[in-house]
Amino acid sequence: MADLRTPPGRAGRMRVSRSLDVARRGADLLDQKLRILRTEHERLVRADRAARERWHARLTEAETWLRRGLLLGGEEALTAPAAGHLTALEIGWASTMGVRHPRTAVCTIPELSPDTPPAENSALLLAETAYADAVRAAAESAAAHEAARAVGEELLKTRQRLRALRRQWIPRLESALARADAALEQAEHEDAVRRRWAAGSAGKTR
Rank of each mutant, 00 (worst) to 15 (best):
T60N: 13
R149E: 07
G12L: 07
G200D: 02
Q168M: 03
E185G: 08
W169A: 05
A50I: 08
Y131W: 07
E174N: 03
P117W: 04
D48G: 08
W65T: 03
T158S: 00
R13S: 11
A137D: 03
D31W: 03
V22P: 04
T104Y: 13
D191H: 12
A150V: 14
L59F: 06
D28T: 14
T39H: 14
A11I: 12
R38S: 14
A80W: 13
V16K: 04
M1W: 11
R38E: 09
L78V: 14
S19Q: 15
P118I: 05
E61M: 00
R35T: 08
E188N: 11
G9S: 09
V16L: 04
L4I: 14
T205E: 13
L125Q: 08
M97H: 01
A82D: 09
P171R: 01
R13D: 08
V151T: 09
A88P: 09
I91P: 03
W93V: 02
D181G: 07
A142C: 00
D28A: 15
E120Q: 14
A2P: 04
I36A: 14
L112H: 04
A134D: 02
M14S: 10
S95W: 07
G69R: 12
E174W: 07
D48S: 15
K157Q: 06
R25N: 12
A23I: 09
V22W: 15
L126E: 12
H41E: 11
A88D: 00
R206D: 13
V193G: 04
A57V: 09
R67S: 08
R179T: 05
A138D: 06
V45H: 08
A127E: 05
H56R: 15
A51W: 04
G98Q: 06
G98L: 06
E188R: 12
W55G: 09
A83F: 14
I36S: 10
L37Y: 10
V99M: 07
A27Y: 05
E40V: 13
W93L: 05
G203K: 10
W93P: 12
